[in-house]
């Protein structure tokens, strides 16, 4: 009896018992909640895709529902559109092919995820492109920790809308003010006092666009590049 009490088991039985109980508890939590968590992570990106590809006006006041791969948009005037989003094998952080209606529908565009260093920390973006990748349709900032009231202006729509409709045949540059930005169609006007953040966003967009173009030119196995 005393040998049992002094052995490792006698010392540690409570911990082993607790580990078993807590393990079962965590397993139950995991089984119950992990589908929901994955859904949340997916929905965060899916919800932004219509605005990126169709433009901000098309989704203003619209209600967006997500079921599996399908994103349905019901606009304020009652028109409804539905998109299919399928993730493609890619070297980018993520690349989505978006088609109208069902997966067999016409290719509407591409949405890719890209990231790089900003002023304070990593900036993570979604970049929307037309189906033939000749034009940027919009950008959205997923994650950033730029300085409040200066660099974090990159999330505002008045900064982001500069990117919509720019052709992709030449890399974007940053103009420090409106005059500098007006000199070239590929120039983005920097946020006041946050040139570094603005330049980082442009660099991420340039890199992501270049990457998407290569991905489509030299598709990986299983890549769906149908028009």
């Amino acid at each position: 009896m005393s040998r049992l009490r002094n052995s490792y088991l006698g010392q540690a039985w409570l911990i082993l018992l607790l580990a078993g109980v807590f393990g079962a508890l965590l397993a139950a939590i995991h089984l119950e909640l992990s589908p929901r968590i994955e859904e949340n992570i997916r929905a965060e990106i899916m919800r932004e895709i219509p605005g990126l590809l169709l433009g901000g006006e098309a989704v203003a006041g619209a209600s967006i529902t997500i079921v599996g791969d399908q994103v349905s948009i019901e606009s304020a005037s009652g028109e409804s559109t539905s998109l299919t989003v399928v993730e493609q094998p890619s070297e980018a952080a993520a690349l989505y092919r978006v088609s109208e209606g069902d997966p067999e529908g016409r290719l509407l565009g591409w949405v890719a995820r890209g990231q790089d260093h900003g002023y304070a920390d990593v900036i993570e973006l979604l970049v929307g492109l037309t189906g033939d990748t000749t034009q940027i349709t919009g950008i959205y900032v997923l994650n950033q920790k730029e300085t409040p009231a200066l660099g974090d202006g990159i999330v505002r729509s008045d900064f982001r809308q500069h990117f919509a409709g720019i052709a992709t045949d030449s890399p974007l540059t940053v103009g420090r003010n409106a005059e500098e930005a007006a000199q070239s169609p590929y120039s983005i006007q920097a946020l006041t006092g946050a040139t570094v953040s603005s330049r980082s966003v442009c660099n991420i967009v340039n890199d992501t666009v270049a990457l998407v173009k290569t991905e489509i030119a030299e598709p990986l196995e299983g890549f769906d590049g149908r028009p």
Binding site: L25, L26, I29, H30, L33, S34, R36, I37, N40, I41
Partner: peptide
């Protein structure tokens, strides 16, 4: 803490 973290991620992402 794991339980709290998972619950937050599921219901208040």
């Amino acid at each position: 803490v794991t339980i709290a973290d998972r619950t937050l991620a599921a219901f208040a992402y």
